[in-house]
Amino acid sequence: MAAPARKRPRASPELLEALRAGKAALRRQRERLALREKVRILLELQRLCMPLIARHRPLAEWERPWEITP
């Protein structure tokens, strides 16, 4: 028999809306970054993501972090 559902505090619609608005604002802020900064982020993402992708499938020969500066 399942345990009786425990009453937990839940996020209000207002709080959820505020959190979503915050996320959208962050996205807009990242959209407006200078291109050089975006490339710097991309190079960082490449280094971070590669081991994660490699856990799921073999990497193609060209799928390596780029050895370049932004």
Binding site: R30, E31, K38, L42, L45, C49, E63, W66
Partner: peptide, 12 residues
């Protein structure tokens, strides 16, 4: 996409 939106990971 990087030019118009947030950067996303890509390798080429």
């Amino acid at each position: 996409m990087m030019f118009w939106a947030e950067p996303i990971p890509t390798y080429d």
